[in-house]
Design a protein around this nucleic acid. Structure first.
Length: 369
DNA sequence: CACCCGTGGTG
DNA sequence: TCACCAAGGGT
């Protein structure tokens, strides 16, 4: 019962290795992408790009990358920055642990490596936020070292090349072997970049352009006409949907109350408007009043509806129903968060907020006009 | 190893 | 509206 398909993989013949490398690098010279982080050999800049590109599309990354290097041009500048400034610069990119780890790693590099990004695989892998794929990306791009990579693009290309019979997640060690065997030891930088570009521009998830692919005559998926079926994907369960009541609490100085989320967990280190989950049979105003008492230990009066925000995270969806509230009594205490603060509408822009909360801020500005 | 961790674009 | 997707790593 529940038996899964056996793992089969059509390994690349030895005789095909060099022709595959040569044709890919030739293709890259004509069709490879000209990206900002390919105009430098500075390992710091390349590191920043690799972290930003984790689970994030090139088009989204480019403006963040430019702004980041303008603000923090060196490891040292990043190491001495405030975490809040780092998170503010990262605001909107998501997966905020990447920014926290980047900041921590910069401090480690400053202390242990004299501010020079290390060039040895073992040292690089020790840094927080850097796994095998990112380490290979940095070392091959910055130092032209022969270290393989296995990101989403490469997984897809290699799964098709070998007609892998299971989802890539189920065959990671096999795919790493293929990536390592295929790697062109004479041109590791070019080869790894070419492999990623092939996945990003030709070997697309849907409707791959096999007629433009330098590898089609060796591609087992193409030869078996399975290119649109591969790689195999895992079924996903539907996302739970949570109803959240949120408070914009005003005091007599025309300030609003915000709180900083704990470092660990969802949106760690970012600020937000306080609130919480609506319980069964509970009204939104009752929920807001209860949550604010529990989280901040204060009494409020729940007033007009401000905005409703729908947002999807990786593992669940939320509907934020936001109300204006009036502070009545008690000093706000950080009972379930790191910090609480009263801020004016003009100061609020300097704090890092998650996207769903940014919509609330936009609505406040809109309403103030 | 299964689960957690964001966001914006797309059909 | 919704499912799926995009240069993964930490626990």
């Amino acid at each position: 019962m529940g038996s899964k398909a056996a793992l089969t993989i059509r390994t690349v013949p030895k005789s095909a290795m060099q022709p595959l490398r040569d044709s890919l690098i030739n293709w890259y010279h004509q069709w490879g992408r000209d990206l900002p982080w390919r105009q430098t050999l500075d390992p710091y800049a390349i590191w920043i790009s690799e972290i930003m590109l984790q689970q994030t599309q090139v088009k989204t990354v480019i403006p963040y990358y430019q702004q980041w290097l303008k603000t923090f041009p060196t490891v040292q500048m990043l190491a001495v920055a405030d975490q809040q400034q780092v998170l503010k610069l990262w605001q909107g990119l998501g997966y905020y642990a990447r920014a926290r780890n980047l900041h921590r790693a910069a401090q480690i590099i400053a202390e242990e490596w004299g501010g020079q990004f290390p060039d040895r695989l073992n040292a690089v892998l020790q840094l927080p936020g850097i796994g095998k794929t990112t380490a290979g990306g940095i070392l091959s791009a910055a130092f032209n070292q022969s270290v393989p990579i296995l990101d989403g693009n490469v997984k897809r290309v290699l799964a098709r090349l070998t007609a892998l019979s299971v989802p890539p997640k189920r065959a990671l060690s096999e795919l790493w072997q293929v990536s390592e065997q295929m790697l062109d030891l004479k041109h590791p930088r070019l080869f790894n970049q070419a492999l990623m570009d092939l996945g990003a521009t030709v070997c697309l998830p849907k409707q791959p352009s096999c007629e433009r692919c330098p590898w089609s005559e060796y591609c087992q998926a193409y030869l078996l006409n399975l290119q649109s079926k591969l790689p195999m994907s895992e079924p996903r369960s539907p996302l739970p949907h949570k109803q959240i009541g949120v408070a914009v609490i005003w005091n007599d100085q025309n300030q609003v109350l915000i709180d900083k989320r704990p470092q660990k967990g969802l949106l760690g280190g970012l600020w937000e408007f306080p609130g919480g989950k609506v319980e069964a049979g509970e009204s939104i105003p009752d929920c807001i009043q209860r949550e604010i008492k529990e989280e901040l230990g204060i009494e409020i009066n729940v007033g007009d509806h401000l905005i409703t925000v729908d947002h999807a995270y990786t593992h669940f969806k939320v509907t934020l129903t936001v109300h204006h509230c009036r502070h009545l009594d008690g000093e706000p205490k950080p009972l379930e968060c790191d910090e609480v603060r009263w801020v004016s509408l003009s100061e609020i822009e300097t704090y890092p907020f998650p996207s769903a909360n940014q919509q609330i801020i936009d609505a406040l500005h809109q309403q103030a006009l």
